[in-house]
């Protein structure tokens, strides 16, 4: 009897259903995007085939995919780590730039053998990212100022800073381009084809964080503080200290992402070095439900989508369109997450 059916909201969504909701959100977004493409004259099915063959048809395609995977994995990890303590690090984009900036500074101006310079660049990238998130971190820890906006505004400052140095003081005066720095000589060695060691390092970092969070006392305290700060205080956990540590770690990871991009992939600092990696990192973390291991997989998915956008640029599709589709996925995911709490039950009268 239909009248015996009721819609009820449960306090927690079943993980399986939440996963299903995510998959449905992605498929629905792609469907909507295809419809829009169809209306505007492009042929979505053909484009899809083109993307698949370009990506998986050659090792070159897969290497390109992996090169996109690295920064997405790292920024996604950065956001996911921040979320463990309940912080919204929307500034991964800026921390990425700051890390790239610092790494380039070392790479261009500190003489020395690669074996020395690369680790220095790594440290510089990490520190650059940490410095970039420092002010929002302290504001959050000591003044309770919401970090969402402070981290985000610094994105614009970082982008301007990189633009300024790469077209100004650090400009490559010898080469053809006048909007990028000279090539940074130190390079991260290749791991497979064009893909550099940043990929396995990134994966190791993700797994490392996941292990520490699940299997250490510190990890327990961080998870508790992120989920309910009052309960953590009641348990005597130094919440403020953990907020600072975790947020700095989050910034550090994003900064390292920037260093990887410079030393491993593009080798020059220039204005558009981040393909919105910081913002897409938010998407990666959300899709992975902030799981440090899960970001490996959602970053792969995001890399596929971003790669598709780049491939389709020849067909007139811009990366902005990819951004819009990503937004649509995020929107539908948010709705799906909430709807996953509901279930239909039969009421026994």
């Amino acid at each position: 009897m239909l009248s015996g059916l009721r819609l009820q909201r449960l306090p927690s969504a079943h993980p399986g259903i939440a996963l299903g909701a995510r998959v449905a959100a992605i498929l629905l977004a792609l469907l909507l995007a295809s419809i829009v493409l169809e209306i505007s004259g492009a042929a979505p099915l053909e484009l899809g085939v083109q993307v698949i063959s370009a990506t998986f048809g050659s090792t070159y395609g897969i290497e390109d995919l992996c090169l996109l995977l690295i920064p997405l994995l790292m920024t996604g990890l950065a956001v996911a780590v921040g979320q463990q303590i309940g912080a919204w690090n929307i500034g991964a984009e800026g921390q990425f730039y700051a890390g790239a900036f610092s790494a380039t500074a070392i790479g261009l101006f500190v003489p020395g053998p690669e074996i020395l310079i690369l680790p220095l660049m790594f440290i510089a990238g990490a520190v650059g990212g940490m410095i970039w998130i420092l002010v929002p971190t302290l504001a959050r820890a000591y003044a309770g100022v919401n970090e969402l906006i402070t981290t985000l505004l610094l994105n614009f400052v970082a982008a301007l800073m990189v633009y300024y140095v790469s077209t100004g003081p650090w400009r490559d005066r010898v080469g053809m381009s006048n909007s990028a720095t000279p090539r940074v000589k130190a390079e991260i060695p290749e791991f497979w084809g064009l893909v550099h060691w940043g990929l396995p390092l990134g994966v190791l970092m993700a797994i490392g964080f996941a292990l520490v969070l699940s299997y250490s006392k510190w990890g327990y305290e961080v998870r508790l503080s992120g989920s309910n700060p009052s309960a953590a205080k009641y348990a005597g956990i130094p919440v403020r200290r953990h907020i600072i540590t975790v947020m700095l770690l989050s910034g550090m990871v994003a900064g390292i992402a920037g260093m990887f991009e410079i030393a491993g992939t593009v080798h020059r600092l220039q204005g558009g070095i981040s393909n919105n990696f910081g913002y897409l990192g938010i998407m990666v973390a959300v899709l992975a439900r902030n799981s440090c291991v899960g970001v490996i997989f959602s970053a792969a998915l995001m890399a596929l989508i971003l790669n598709a956008g780049i491939i389709l640029q020849t067909q007139g599709l811009t990366t902005s369109a990819v951004l819009a589709i990503t937004g649509l996925i995020l929107f539908l995911t948010a709705i799906g997450d909430e709807l996953a709490h509901y279930r239909i039950t039969r009421i026994k009268i």
Partner: peptide, 27 residues
Amino acid sequence: ANAADFVEMGIGHIPEDRLHSGLAPAL
């Protein structure tokens, strides 16, 4: 004052709003 120390010393606490400060509901 340090809540963790007090626990070590054997002082327990059933708080007033236990569902909000005594627990992390999502964990």
